[in-house]
Design a binder for these strands. Structure first.
Length: 608
RNA sequence: GGGGUCGUAGCUCAAUUGGUUAGAGCACCGGACUGUCGAUCCGGAGGUUGCGGGUUCGAGACCCGUCGACCUCGCCA
């Protein structure tokens, strides 16, 4: 078990005892080594005490080797007193295990080392967190003793996987002609997007640096500087609240940008990289081969009720507004008159399931804050639920439109378009989970394309950028001048895998006059653009190539490959949900002297 | 900031649903055992049931408050 996921040894196998701590690592010895005197070092993983015979499972990064000490050995006394997770060095002879004593679960299971000397290098206190076994432990204990947690098999393997994935991404990007550059960490705050992490300036009273939310403007400047294809495993910082798939504070992206490209060129460049790295670490899971399906944002919202659809889920939502429009089912017919739509979620072969399945799904929708989910359950072609209210003609129309089988079920979400899509999307996921329809052991990629450039902000009652303000609007200046802003699409795209948004990207707006116009529509005048995006807008006045790129999230890629539901499982030293590092004690107070130098005063009474 | 779940030994969990002295496994300490690999067997120590208040003859359980963790909404161009 241990050792299989870990890389092989860097240590020579000559068996000489020149090295102070070890001649071999703990995953290295085999039957061929029987008879050699060896030296090993590592942690006491398990100890089995038979009174006159002791077994120690000695563990290091590479694996586990069984060490045996019997009563006659001078090493017996010290070994007997060893505590778990203490660090020891042992010296002894490699011996063959008897046929009945071979451990087939261990790469080193055919041998063991009979210790003649055991030295305690570092004693371990009683553990707050057992290293052996696969039990789950509370997050706060795990984070506080992260170094112990990282010794554990699963987490240790995850971090090795992470390193291998990053190495693979780097190699594939370089092979594809990209050049890696480092962009600044201390930079300027930007008005759009997430909340910035600010860093006070000592030399400039009252001014602040910001940590980059992404190297967005720098990578575009690299294109203006003529580097053609850039990438970076880029640290990004956003002061937003955490989620299971969103680390608070900081995360990494495979940030890349390309010159003289269309949207399709960007897709063609990154698809083989993502396919390649997912295939490399798939462990038998299937991966969507390039080209990945392209789905327009509008279609995604209609068919999947989400702009990050999980294509492992075979269910598709159908708009059935016309089936209900002006019909006898008054609740829906009335709602449609005032602008609602009806979206139907099929539940294949669920018609014969207990009524509780339908009722509990309806109750779930209500608990989620929606009006509820109406349903029809077909049994041998006979419709229950709201079928009677709807009448046979319209039911037949529905069956035809959705190609429903004689024992299928179907749910209906009726609401204003945005809410109906959201509920239908959530119901699609829930129904597929309940019916166990979600494909296993696969990575299903797609592109979501044609995002709207702008959207209407109800709260502020104005047009705002819906995603990235630096995207090129489809139709360029002509569209900005002549179309309804809410109808304008952008050359903007997301990569989605198994319902997880891996990245967003865009063909950028590289023309100053279009940039000014685009910002004007969102309510920023030229001076704001000049001030806030000075570096970039200025550069665009001196010959900017058409360019575009994207930035897949590295943590999320590793999460998918490691099959971990929580992003902290693939990060070495993550912060907790409140953005605290429990091990290092961050954030922390600073000295008065530090604050004085920065001319910063703490206002109000901070919590102790 | 809102909502949800949870909080019992160092760790994982239990406590017949309000009833005697809060139990078990792992870890720890002591003892037995020469072939285990989650070793086994015997014994020991370990608890302000997160904290504060309330209801009750009686609270780990019920109520109120509070603290903390996680999940989630808002937020994340």
């Amino acid at each position: 078990m241990v050792g299989e996921t870990r890389s092989s040894s860097p240590i020579g196998s000559e068996g000489n005892l020149m090295h102070a701590y070890r001649t071999h690592n703990c995953s290295q010895l085999r039957s061929e080594d029987v008879g050699h005197i060896v030296r090993l070092a590592g942690w006491v993983y398990r100890k089995r005490d038979h009174g006159n015979l002791l077994f120690v499972d000695l563990r290091d990064h590479y694996g586990v080797t069984q060490v045996v000490v019997d009563r006659d050995s001078e090493a017996f006394a010290v070994t007997e007193g060893l505590k778990l997770e203490s660090v020891i060095r042992i010296e002894g002879r490699v011996t063959s295990r008897g046929a009945e004593a071979v451990n087939p679960h261990l790469p080193t299971g055919e041998i063991e080392v009979r210790a003649v000397a055991v030295e305690l290098l570092s004693e371990a206190a009683e553990l707050p967190l057992p290293v052996f076994g696969n039990t789950d432990y509370p997050e706060d204990v795990r984070l506080k003793y992260r170094f112990l947690d990282l010794r554990r098999e699963k987490l240790h393997a995850n971090m090795v996987l992470r390193s291998q994935v990053i190495a693979s991404l780097r190699r594939r990007m370089i092979d594809a002609g990209f050049t890696e550059f480092q962009t600044p960490i201390l930079t300027a705050s930007s008005p759009e997007g997430a909340r910035d992490f600010l860093v006070p300036s000592r030399l400039h009273h009252g001014k602040f640096y910001a940590l980059p939310q992404a190297p967005q403007m720098f990578k575009q400047l690299l294109m203006v500087a003529g580097f053609d294809r850039y990438f970076q495993i880029a640290p990004c910082f956003r002061d937003e609240d955490a989620r299971a798939d969103r680390s608070p504070g900081e995360f990494y992206q495979l940030d890349f940008e390309m010159s003289f490209v269309t949207q399709e060129d960007v897709f063609a460049a990154i698809e083989p990289v993502l396919y390649g790295v997912f295939d490399e670490f798939s462990k038998g899971r299937t991966v969507t081969p390039p080209p990945f399906p392209r789905i327009a944002y509008k279609d995604a919202m209609l068919r999947y009720g989400s702009d990050k659809p999980d294509l492992r889920n075979p269910l598709e939502i159908v708009d059935v507004t016309e089936v209900f429009q002006g019909g006898p089912f008054a609740v829906f017919a009335k709602a449609i008159e005032s602008g609602s739509v009806v979206r139907a979620i099929p539940a294949p072969k669920a018609g014969t399931m207990a009524r509780s399945f339908f009722d509990s799904t309806n109750q779930w929708a209500r608990d989620e804050g929606f009006a509820g989910l109406a349903y029809i359950n077909f049994k041998g072609g006979e419709g229950g639920g709201i079928a009677k209210n709807l009448g046979p003609e319209r039911v037949a129309q529905l069956v035809g439109k959705m190609k429903l089988g004689p024992n299928d079920g179907v749910f209906f979400a009726c609401d204003k378009p945005a809410n109906a899509a959201k509920l239908a999307g959530m119901a699609r996921t829930r129904v597929a989970q309940e019916l166990d329809l979600i494909e296993k052991n696969s990575f299903r990629f797609c592109w979501i394309v044609d995002f709207p450039m702008y959207e209407w902000d109800e709260l502020e009652q104005r047009v705002v950028f819906s995603h990235n303000p630096f995207s090129m609007p489809q139709g360029e200046m002509d569209a900005l001048l002549h179309k309804d802003p809410l109808e304008i699409l952008a050359y903007q795209y997301d990569i989605v895998c198994n319902g997880i948004e891996l990245s967003s990207g865009a063909i950028r707006n590289h023309k100053p006059e279009i940039m000014y116009k685009a910002f004007e529509i969102a309510g920023y005048d030229q001076s704001v653009v000049d001030e806030k995006f000075r570096g970039m807008i200025n550069a665009f006045k001196f010959g900017a190539p058409p360019h575009g790129g994207s930035a897949p999230g590295v943590d999320r890629i590793v999460m998918l490959l490691a099959d971990e539901p929580n992003i902290r499982e693939v990060i070495l030293f993550p912060m907790n949900q409140k953005a605290e590092d429990l091990m290092m004690g961050a954030p922390s107070n600073v000295t008065e002297k530090q604050l004085r130098e920065l001319r910063i005063a703490i206002v109000g009474q901070p919590k102790p």
